[in-house]
């Protein structure tokens, strides 16, 4: 599987993502700078965590309008799997590729810890290797992870099986405990927790690994 990691000024989980992709897929990802307008054909595109553009205006707002995102949006529309983690999730909502918005955590605190969450739908290309309702432990580290959408959108997300992950406890005020969602077509996943930081026992666990193997298995 050939992959790419998009790098914005202020990204800080791009290398974690690159390590996870290299270890799991056996291929080093392309690291693509935000000012680029094109890059080689890849099977998978990751938008990493961090504080792109210093979170100016709104988290992910500036990155969503960067040169490279025009190309990422084009490829998303072609069906290429896109995976946004943390700030990457915020970028995906700001582009409109995923519905809703990520707001300041309800208790105003930066939350940084391993959290238990549940696989809410294992019938997606990103979650197929997990069991139904599997409980997994994945780290979070964010200040703006409070998922918001209007009631109709939330009902649609649940009705269409677009809620991929839910927190087991309320950590940030996210509506309906949503930790990660897919688009309707199912080729885009955005989530606040960091599965790329849980890929081997030396990191404290390997519950994040199946997310990457799910995509690999689907593509092969």
């Amino acid at each position: 599987m050939k992959s790419a990691v998009i790098v914005f000024p202020g990204s800080n989980c791009d290398r974690d993502m690159a390590v996870a992709l290299t270890k799991i897929t056996g291929n080093k990802p392309l690291m693509v700078w935000h000012q680029e307008t094109d890059f080689d054909t890849v099977d998978f595109i990751a938008l990493p965590g961090g504080f792109s553009y210093g979170d100016y205006l709104r988290c992910g707002a500036m990155s969503a309008k960067s040169n490279i995102m025009k190309e990422v949006i084009r490829r998303a529309e072609d069906g290429v799997p896109i995976f946004g983690v943390c700030n990457g999730f915020q970028v995906l909502t700001e582009t409109g590729l995923l519905p809703g918005a990520l707001m300041r955590n309800a208790n105003l605190s930066f939350v940084c810890k391993d959290v238990k969450m549940t696989v809410a739908n294992n019938d997606t290309m990103f979650t197929a290797d997990y069991a139904e309702d599997e409980e997994i432990l994945i780290p979070v580290a964010h200040h703006d992870g409070n998922y918001f959408a209007d009631e109709n959108t939330l009902d649609t997300l649940e009705g269409e099986g677009q809620v991929a992950f839910r927190y087991n406890e309320d950590i940030n005020g996210a509506q309906r405990a949503i930790a990660g969602i897919t688009n309707k077509r199912g080729n885009i996943l955005g989530m606040m927790p960091h599965p790329e930081r849980m890929i081997e026992p030396a990191l404290g666990g390997s519950d994040g690994r199946k997310l990457f193997t799910s995509v690999m298995n689907r593509l092969s």
Binding site: L57, A61, K65, G100, A101, M103, A149
Partner: peptide, 9 residues
């Protein structure tokens, strides 16, 4: 509409 406000919220 395109940048300064996020009309979702």
């Amino acid at each position: 509409r395109k940048l300064l406000a996020n009309t979702v919220i």
